[in-house]
Amino acid sequence: MPALLAENVTAGYGRTPIITDISLSVEKGTVTTIIGPNGAGKSTFAKAVVGILRPTNGRIVVGDLDITRMPGHQIPRHGVAYVPQNDNVFKSLTVRENLEVGGFAVKGDTSARMEEILSVFTDLDKAREKKAGFLSGGQQNLLAIARALMVGPSVIVLDEPTAGLSPAYTDVVWNQVERIAASGTGVLVVEQNVERALHHAHFVHIFVAGSNHVHGLASEIASLDLAAIFLGRAEANRS
């Protein structure tokens, strides 16, 4: 059973569909990335998965639970965590408070979980009483990821977690993403950097003009003419 299964999902803003008939699955313990040109609907799909947008068609299943019609604020309680693209931390709260807010959907004491997470995110541990607004962009992204882990997710959806980061910090973030997957969580990453996506992911989906144009193992996708696919010139549908 996949950690996340999306079947024939259509969603958009208002009555205009941005993505149509998208299907994909995220297995436990793997990194799946979605790449594609700007406006392809990558972030829209991520928002539909986590309940920010309600799909007009199709269904989204986490484990064996259908979350398609579930209110967005209830979805994290069922093991789905989301890290938005920009401005993804609470800047006036400290690192610790950000993590506490992240764990608020979990019943019981979350302090042990927080210590566990901070032991992995050592940069954040040193800055635990600093306001998040004073962290660097990379640290803020790490904090957003760490906060998402507070609910002990079975699936985590990351929307361009390395956007605007230095190459060094991009490595740090991707290393953490791989560690998260290695712990058994299904990771779905929306990524602009094709090279990184192919390097770190197990599976890759290429969205073009709102549809899941090509998908497969990262090693297989790497051998394709991606420029042609991105420009919509290649009919490379495959499974």
């Binding site: 986590v50 920010i52 209110p71 967005g72 604020h73 209830q74 979805i75 994290p76 309680r77 989301y82 938005p84 401005d87 993804n88 931390v89 609470f90 807010v101 992240g102 608020f104 959907a105 906060r147 998402a148 609910v151």
Partner: peptide, 9 residues
């Protein structure tokens, strides 16, 4: 918006 994604109504 971010708060809503963390399970807050």
């Amino acid at each position: 918006g971010v708060a809503a994604t963390l399970g807050k109504s």
